[in-house]
Design a binder for these strands. Structure first.
Lengths: 147, 147
DNA sequence: ACCATCTTGATGCAAGTGCATTTATCTATA
DNA sequence: TATAGATAAATGCACTTGCATCAAGATGGT
């Protein structure tokens, strides 16, 4: 049933490998710098972009493609450290609003130099600018923003 | 320090998303079919390719980019189920040789149709043949086979 | 208003992962 | 041939993830 063409299998296996290698390299650098895991950065970035009004957990969940229970506990940890604030949602009695704190913004700024350098080393260093652009565009087709 | 160009950051974030989405979709299908996780397939495939003489755990580790302790325990589980055989290495008193069993080969054959269809759905369906080829080649540059 | 159904978010428990360390064996150099 | 150092693999313990389920609040039809 639907045995995929060889080029597709090749793309998939390379996607796995490239991602695994790059992610491990990035996480290693963060750890070496005494910084929290990547997921923390993603949360901080999304919340910072959301600004004053914050984000509902389920929105963050969709933005990050994170499992509900994982996000719930990630937010536990991050708010315990004071990087994220949970407040009850005004419109929805079930829900909450997550906002980034001052400490959260500071943490994100502290992570970025290390993270950015790691991205450059793991991705940028291997590709020409045109290749990087093409790669990004092709990957975007695999999971289009608004689908 | 070394803030990467925008195209590089874009490629990285898309790599993360595309991989996360595709992987989740593939794992979901395996689970729905009552099959073990993807990593099992990778082990079975590598061992089947290695043939009679098998593979040393550390070789498998490099092939799969899997952490040593994780592989050690993954092999525990797989050999407990009879899909992989562990035997002491003849040349190296510390080491072992892993080989796939008949049941292991059967499992791999049983997984492939589901896995192949999932790859097609997650990757093939979104790309032309030429795009798939280009994507695979670009990803290969991120983690060249023999580096 | 009522009830069935859906959505949001949390949580108990089992399974997997990461970290540090350990044991055993191999290798190289003096 | 000793012996210091490297490599192969396992393991105890803490943390994270996955799974299933739950409780509380929203929603829509009657």
């Amino acid at each position: 049933m639907a045995a995929p063409p060889e080029a597709v299998v090749h793309a998939w296996t390379r996607l796995e490998r490239a991602h695994r290698a790059a992610l491990a390299a990035v996480e290693d650098r963060l750890k070496a710098a005494g910084l929290p895991p990547l997921a923390w950065y993603d949360v901080l970035l999304e919340l910072e972009r959301a600004g004053e009004q914050g984000l509902r957990p389920f929105e963050l969940q969709k933005a990050m493609l994170f499992a509900q229970y994982n996000l719930s506990r990630l937010i536990d940890r991050m708010s315990a450290k004071g990087y994220v604030a949970r407040t009850a949602s005004a419109e929805d009695g079930r829900g909450q609003l997550l906002t980034i704190t001052r400490a959260g913004r500071a943490l994100r700024r502290r992570i970025w130099p290390v993270y950015g350098a790691a991205i450059e080393a793991a991705v940028g260093a291997h590709l020409s600018p045109a290749e990087a652009r093409t790669l990004g565009d092709l990957l975007e087709k695999l999971h289009p923003p608004r689908s």
